[in-house]
């Protein structure tokens, strides 16, 4: 009696015309009961489907902690932090530049002083040259 039923169900099954309930009957028959020889060749199919159902994923999905609104917050924080670092860096690096400039300035001043002394002495020299001009005057008077 059961084998007639199973035969009918199998026929419908391969045509894609069984309901889910009927498929449960088939699965139970082939995996839990004594399968009659004429249906023996179908047993692996139902055993295979059963085994396929037992497979499970081993890894848990990993999700990022926060997204969306929180992410844009983080962008804001990161941007302001970057600005702070830039400004701070600029401020702190400034004194070192002025120290260099200071050095250059003092060097400039020193050399300016030296130049002034030099030119003063030159001027002293030109004062003495006025006497030489006197020679010229006398010579002009004589050779007129």
């Amino acid at each position: 009696m059961e084998s007639v039923n199973i035969e009918k169900l199998l026929e419908a099954y391969f045509e894609g015309n069984t309901t889910l309930n009927e498929e449960v009957i088939l699965r139970t028959y082939f995996t839990e009961k004594e399968v009659e020889p004429q249906f023996q060749m179908y047993a692996p199919l139902f055993a295979g489907l059963k085994a396929a159902k037992q497979e499970v994923a081993t890894k848990e999905p990993v999700l990022p902690e926060s997204l969306g609104i929180n992410r844009s917050w983080w962008y804001g924080i990161a941007a302001s932090a970057a600005i702070v670092v830039l400004v701070a860096g600029f401020m702190f690096s400034r004194p070192s530049i002025t120290a260099q400039e200071q050095e250059a300035l003092t060097a400039f001043n020193e050399s300016k002083k030296a130049m002034l002394i030099l030119s003063e002495n030159f001027n002293k020299g030109t004062g003495h040259l006025a006497i030489v001009n006197e020679f010229n005057n006398t010579k002009n008077r004589i050779l007129k």
Partner: peptide, 12 residues
């Protein structure tokens, strides 16, 4: 387990 069962392996 699946591989041990020949018929099932064939169906896979």
């Amino acid at each position: 387990q699946i591989e041990a069962n020949d018929g099932v392996a064939i169906v896979f």
